[in-house]
């Protein structure tokens, strides 16, 4: 909109053009990100096939805990991200930070486990042959969630741009890894603790660097 010399002229022009506006609702943002996560999961299943061990009880406790934490972190960061698109002042939710801290205990535990020599599975630790595939597939699934988040933020009016960047990265990383994770049959602690958590950290950094210029308004 052009700048006016006089504020009254600006107000008159805006009043003249005033039309009913569709409200930006939190529920719309949550539904959009949840739907995109489901799409990412369906796409992952189409490409990598569903791992039936999830339902037959074959999946290890580590696998279930890791993906449960990813779900919690995804939900917490989505809730904060969606709220962040609506301007407000006041206390900010710290749930994503605590969720990320909880998830961070897994790679620490995985490294300690590897150092203690208890893990002898072929796909363990840094020599994991599928580490690259799990990381890239999770990041690809997360990219879908990230795009949906950016579209939502652009519809809204985020006033903490850098925080929105971090949250987008956390939501995309955790939900993308969750969406891909249900197709991964490797359920050792060192595998899920390292390679199903690393995409979250990578995605958070990418989100912080890439998202702010896209959502500035």
């Amino acid at each position: 909109m052009e700048k006016y010399n006089n504020r009254a002229d600006l107000i008159a022009a805006m009043t003249e053009d005033l039309t009913p506006v569709r409200r930006v609702k939190r529920s719309d943002g949550i539904a959009l990100i949840a739907f995109t996560t489901v799409v990412a999961a369906v796409a992952s299943i189409a490409v990598f096939e569903w791992w039936s061990g999830l339902l037959t009880g074959e999946a290890s406790g580590y696998f279930l805990i890791t993906h449960g934490l990813l779900l919690i972190l995804g939900a917490a960061s989505t809730a904060s991200l969606v709220s962040g698109a609506l301007p407000r002042v006041g206390a900010r939710a710290t749930a994503p930070m605590w969720g990320a801290a909880m998830l961070a205990t897994l790679p620490i535990g995985a490294v300690l486990s590897l150092l203690s020599g208890h893990e002898s599975h072929a796909s363990s630790g840094l020599n994991d042959p599928v580490a690259f595939m799990c990381t890239t597939a999770s990041l690809s699934a997360g990219a879908l969630v990230g795009i949906a988040s950016v579209l939502w933020l652009r519809r809204g009016a985020p006033v903490s741009i850098e925080r929105s960047g971090w949250l987008t990265g956390l939501a995309a990383g955790s939900l993308g890894t969750l969406a891909y994770g249900i197709t991964c049959p490797l359920d050792t602690f060192s595998h899920v603790g390292l390679w199903h958590v690393a995409p979250v950290a990578i995605s958070a950094v990418i989100g912080r660097l890439v998202v702010p210029p896209l959502i500035r308004w």
Binding site: M1, R7, A85, L86, P87, G156
Partner: peptide, 11 residues
């Protein structure tokens, strides 16, 4: 005021 007008749907 311009930002307010453009983003009025976010209240």
């Amino acid at each position: 005021l311009i930002a307010f007008y453009t983003k009025r749907g976010t209240w």
